[in-house]
Design a protein around this nucleic acid. Structure first.
Lengths: 342, 342
DNA sequence: CATGATGTCTGCATCGTTGCAGAGCTCGCA
DNA sequence: TGCGAGCTCTGCAACGATGCAGACATCATG
């Protein structure tokens, strides 16, 4: 079943196991003559080191785990891509699991008989699991959190400034002269911290502009998928005084909203301007292309992986709240098709 | 650094290591009294089994690797999601790596000092690596290939019937009365096997309808991204006699093509009808929504994982070519917005 | 020639777990 | 009372690799 071991090679080459190991790793000096002989046997038997055994001895696996709510949500797919690339630069590979937002799945990687042991570190994009749980579970491997900051001060954490991001998006719409700017994606309950921050930014932008928020224009959605964006938009269109712009808390909601607008014969941006958040690739190619707030995903991934590596290597003891830059990318869904390149 | 081991627990509870192990695993009978006592110490020390050691002993890791070209390509993200879910049903987790179509990355998982040892099996969606290489590398872990069949007979392989899929798509367009149906995505070179099969299907549909193919209407693209779909469409529109329909070899190409059409003032489907392939979620929400050929991704993932598990467990010795069903999903991009639900 | 430095190579212990064989002990039954 | 069966529990070896200390040979040097 399993391939040849150091012992097999050693026996065949009439040398000690240790010497074969030395040849394989180049650790200790081995005479050219012997090296050649051993190497020949290694090649002959097609020896490959058993990484599990090596890991056991060295206490490391060279793997980190990335846990996201849903891998087929473009934002997370794009983020996962960047994480895999960033990890590779450290010689690491990435195990990916998805929680579907289910607490028990998030817990699974932290729990007693978990596989957490198999990984040197964990990148977690939490939806449901609480801070106390994370702390209480006595995890032994370093953790870096992505995109939430509800665990303030207890864990390393990498995210954009959500308040500022939402403020920028809303201000852009107000700056275009829109006066009834709706918000889609609020989550006014315990685990909706990120959404709530965005609502804060939405309100701040109104305050800055000396405008009051029509509470009717804030629509909550339990999650951030296209369908809910479309539904929320339908509801807004049914209002006696519908909005002339909408800030969606992510791009999928925005694309769903645009779809609903189109279906109802409204023109984007002429009748209703739309801004999203995430800058998923899809938004560049949608019709109209999507104005959005772009978090620097590469930077998020690199920073998170670098921080995790530091933790793994014993450094970075003090949990750090790391803020990654974002920027507003203006496309057709707010300013129309002036730019022929789209 | 590392947590308590069986030995630590054993010492503290004044029992043998083996007994602690028995309590942890419930393997052998242990008296209630002792079990309680040991369990108390386990809890006290917050013992977690070291899975690496367990794996070394058992020769399994409970992990499989999934290697795809690009994780942020929606099709692969959706497939990865299904694979993770399917693997979970077998108690397995999934390491994901991306190759970016680079041969050396594909090789990396097969090569001498690879991490392949860390996994019980490998799901590979190959772009560049050749059959001989796969065979020659003497991989010790079972492999199941996804979406290609160039390794005919040598490996387990799961895919849709690409010829039939392309034929169905093209026939749909011809059935709508379109007479200049273009094809975007041919890859007339060594590693473009899948694309070539789709071209075969495209030609078959024409033959069935008693039509000849205008070779000018077949546009090759080195890969399957939105941008290339748009570029190819621009080129087709520049023809003296442009197409009135186009079959794109995947949905991203199709979405890019639609984008190009819209930008050039053509109406979809009135002026040009568009069909894609993959049925990514985005196509349901695009404007217009995208007619496409839908492979059963859940079935692909389940079949592939099940087959891999059989191989891992010693069964399924004969490499099997497994064909997974597909179906045509008709949406606005070919028949217009009759359906108000989109 | 003795000494120590250097260069090669080896064996033992170890990582933390589980498989296996067997040691005690208790108990029932003849 | 004696004996085997059954129940608990234990120690040893092993998975396949690496860390460490040291053995041995060679060589230069005083």
């Amino acid at each position: 079943m399993s391939g040849p071991t150091l012992r097999d090679v050693a026996k065949r080459a009439n040398v000690s196991i240790r010497t074969v190991s030395n040849v394989v790793n180049g650790y200790a000096p081995v005479s050219d003559e012997l090296r050649t002989r051993v190497q020949a046997v290694l090649d002959e038997l097609d020896y490959r080191p058993n990484l599990i055994a090596r890991n056991l001895k060295q206490g490391r696996t060279g793997m980190i785990a990335l846990v996201v709510p849903e891998l087929d949500v473009p934002y997370f797919a794009e983020l996962a891509r960047e994480v895999i690339t960033a990890a590779r630069a450290h010689g690491y590979v990435v195990m990916i699991d998805q929680t579907d937002g289910a607490v028990e799945r998030e817990r699974a990687l932290l729990g007693r008989d978990s596989r957490a042991m198999m990984f040197d570190g964990l990148l977690l994009s939490p939806l449901a699991v609480s801070a106390e749980e994370l702390r209480g579970r006595g995890n032994r491997i370093p953790i870096v959190l992505l995109g939430e900051h509800i665990f303030n001060g207890s864990f390393h954490h990498v995210a954009i400034d959500n308040v500022a991001a939402a403020r920028d998006a809303t201000a852009h719409l107000l700056g275009l002269g829109r006066r009834r700017v709706a918000a889609i994606g609020d989550q006014p309950y315990a685990t909706g911290e990120t959404a709530q921050l965005r609502t804060v930014g939405y309100r701040q932008a109104h305050a800055h502009a000396g405008l009051t928020v029509d509470e009717e224009l804030i629509v909550a959605t339990p999650h951030f998928h296209r369908k809910l964006g479309a539904q929320a938009m339908e509801r807004l269109l049914a209002l006696p005084d519908p909005p002339d712009a909408v800030f969606c808390y992510n791009d999928l909601l925005a694309l769903g909203a645009i779809r609903a607008l189109t279906r109802n014969g409204r023109r984007v941006p002429d009748d209703v301007a739309v801004v999203g958040l995430d800058d998923i690739e899809e938004g560049q190619y949608s019709t109209p292309s999507l104005t959005t707030v772009a978090p620097d995903k590469g930077e998020i991934a690199r920073t998170a992986v670098d921080t995790l590596m530091e933790s793994i290597n014993g450094g970075a003891a003090i949990p750090a709240e790391i803020v990654v830059p974002h920027r507003l990318i203006i496309r057709e869904s707010t300013t129309g098709a002036d730019d022929p390149r789209g």
